[in-house]
Design a protein around this nucleic acid. Sequence first.
DNA 1: ATAGGGTTAG
Length: 781
Amino acid sequence: MTAGPGSRNFFVGLLKSATSLSQLSQTHAQVIVHGLQYDLAIVTKLTHKLSDVKAIHKARQLFLTIPKPDLFLFNVLVKGFSKNESPLASISLYAHLRNNTSLTPDEFTYAFAISGAVGFKDDKYGILLHSHSVVDGLASNLFVGSALVDLYFKFSQVELAQKVFDGMSERDTVLWNTMISGLARNCCFFGSIRAFSDMFARGMPFDSRTLAAVIPAVAELNELQVGMGIHCLTMKEGMDYDVYVLTGLVSLYSKCGEIDTARFLFGKISHPDVVCYNAMIAGYASNNDTESSVRLFKEFLALGEKVNPSTIVGLIPVSYPFGHLQLTSSIQSFCLKSGFLSDSFVSTALTTVYCRLNEIESARQLFDESPKKSLASWNSMISGCTQNGLTEMAISLFREMMSVFSPNPTTITSILSACAQLGLLSLGKWVHNLIESKNLESNIFVKTALVDMYGKCGSIVEARELFDLMTEKNVVTWNAMISGYGLHGHGNEALELYNEMLHTGVAPNGVTFLSILYACSHTGLVREGDNIFKSMVLDHGFEPLAEHYACMVDILGRAGQLVQALEFIRKMPIEPGVVVWGSLLGACMTHKDKSIARVASEKLFELDPGNTGYYVLLSNIYSADRNFPKAALVRQVVKNRKLEKTPGCTLIEIGETTHVFTAGDRSHPRTMEIYAMLDKLTGKLKEGGFQTETITALHDIEEEEKELMVKVHSEKLAIAFGLIATEPGTEIRIIKNLRVCLDCHNATKLISKITERVIVVRDANRFHHFKDGVCSCGDYW
DNA sequence: ATAGGGTTAG
């Protein structure tokens, strides 16, 4: 047949060039006029084009008019449903084809259906299609394999994706590209780069898509050198004018802080589109150049171009929120007016900034009012709570979320952080099971968070086991393990690990030094701490922050070298702030040094008049020195200024249930038994010659204060409850929100001996393992 | 069947 007017080829040609629904409808009308409405070539082309212009319902209606569609037409509609986010329609059509026709699905059917299955909430349909494709002998086809690899990556099933990839007998550029971008999108940044160099080493031809896929991984790792290598490669291959590659490079250089190079490359793009602008706007914002970011945004608007949600997201000062409350609310009003606020990416970014600005109420309002809550929206609200210490709210949001979404690695990481903060080992273990059942163990964030959680919940051995099993570790992973050892007072293990870390070539950061100094402090390793501090400056060129100085003061102070500590502070090149003086005051309490305490506390009252902790510490110092009038005076100051001290409370988990006790608490259902146990213990303690410090410290203190001190401290109640609620001989673990007091510390030592129990206490500062009358902290805390 | 920018996490 020729292409003359009214012929099949004529209509097919007409359809090919059509770009709008109205053109397609007109042509369709003419097709009917010419009696060609059942011509499969024409119908297939029309179906294809209808789904291209998103008129998927029309495509479906057309399909239904065809009495005997062939496999090609089925495939076109399966693809149409998949591309138009109708996964259910796509898989139903596939099932219909498979079960109710004489046709057999081919590699295209599977490839299209699998790519549609990505749109489901979970991966069960994808797995079903995978197994069917295995049965039909098509799973090792390149098209099907690529679609499967992509599918598993979209569901964070990195290992399954890898398995499919490894099992392929043949690999082409597309399959490699899918692998490289999938790894990058699943935070396997090293893996992504490794796959790229593997591909390169095997002589597999790569294209600009390959580079565009690997660049984000390089950017995420801040691997400037690797990035520059890839940049050279793009020039060598003549791909340095590819807009995708250039955009990726703009983002890469921005993320590595090379904003000038980013700007230069942006200038090289002949016709930058909105995505390029977005990368540059976000680049400025993430380099703390809010002004340029806003300027470029306005420039882009002035061009009459339409911004998209990503433009706004890049503009929102997520990385440098401080001092930009005004800008943030301006952006919010702009979004409200232009309708961007309903975009979940935008509202998520705004929620995050408000959380980082400690404007939790604004964040919560935004979150509650956002019409389409994505998993990321929930994650940003949950992590915002976690980071602001609102851990209970975080956990209740998490429970609420679970009925709508299945948690992803980000959610898991946030919630593990909440568990770590609260010491909720049982919830932490539950999350660990969840991770295993969901196969999310390959994520480095998740594993690091697990190590951190076990360390902070007292299971240091468990933490180490997980740590050792990790094949990929970054600086945060090492930091988590080192600080875990620090919390438990295992300074030597921390030092060993630190050296091992240096050996493996991972560069330490500020947190590493903080963790290792902290570990030295809690183990009384003065000389080692001093060496680390010096090496930090001399070998690693690291500029110590106030926190690092505070740690050194802590080290000297805990070791009783208070004069040296004061001397050290006087020599500091930066202004010693609250943390530094606070450390000194804490040390003065331990060593009962009034005169230096007075120096430190005067500084603190001046710097941070609203904080009660220092008043309490100072008053305790006076009390310990039997200077009750002075102690009362300090407490009076607290009262006059209407400063409230944080009430102490202690938490204990029995099985899955958490019990919280406050001082003198009588609200627990087993109160009678608890107090009876306490009486029994007190009797035995007295027999052992133990004297309560509080009783002797009751002169000259107001009635109200006296009462407070007479009240049984919450940790004793929790321990007594632990003794009656658990099997003899088992370990008791409790968590206190404040630092454990001297009296409770002494009592716990003896209780551990009398009852032959190991008692693990996590206080605000560290872990204490009581066993046989001795505490692991060596009375250093 | 694959690609660039933007949200969430340790």
